[in-house]
Amino acid sequence: MDRRSFIKGLAAAAACAASCRARFAHAIGERSRLSIAALAQGGRLEPRPTALRRLLFEVGRRTSIAAAFEPARVDLASPDLFLHPFLFWSGAAGFDPIPERDVLRLRRYISAGGFLLADSAQENGDDFIDSVKREMRRAFPVLPVQPLPPEHVVYKSFYMLRGATGRVQKSDRLEGITVDERTAIVLSTNDLGGAWARDNLGNWEHMVIPGGEAQRELAFRLGTNIVMYALCVDYKDDQVHIPFVLKRRKR
């Protein structure tokens, strides 16, 4: 390659980069991208503050979802709560009951179409998840927390998965609360955030045990599936039936 060719190539690459950037500029707005809001209830520190940014990156890289670059942060009393239909509630310890007003707002948030993923960062014990379940019982007294069976759409909404995983492997199943035919609240005890967390230098922040990097990949796949389920709900179930629907119409 001579100097002139190199300069032409460089100019073409620059033009392409500018074009790609212009394409992003054509986006209808950053606020219309999928954002996930970390629920910082009661001012408690997030145990996995870098996890969501990495999950959003992976979702954007692996799927057609236009994901935001940075997660938001809200609490249940925040006026911005109803700008973010996806909440990620991570904790490493149990907590005291939240105010009644916040319980009512949580109920309204979920009933209006919001989605909540609660993830325990505890390696031992289930204090955080138990506290979350206690609050869910207050918000939805008649709706039970149930294990999500292997045939649940969340395990096949994008990747075909056999069960739940995370930084640790405490349970093979996610749990959830189904509201109006939609699993609107998903509970994980396996520290998904721990598997996703990566620092600014590109290093994974936590070891994944016992499966190592293969298990971390599965944790990203599960995270992608959960995001996909939140946005598509039972789309996958419907898609299976389309040939039958079309045949029925032919008749």
Binding site: R61, R62, T63, S64, K156, S157, F158, Y159, M160, E217, F220, R221, M228, C232, K236, Q239, V240
Partner: peptide, 18 residues
């Protein structure tokens, strides 16, 4: 669910795409 540029990190038989 995925674009031509998507990097799914999995073979097709590990995807649920129909």
């Amino acid at each position: 669910l995925r674009t031509l540029e998507s990097q799914v990190n999995a073979p097709d038989d590990e995807l649920s795409l129909i």
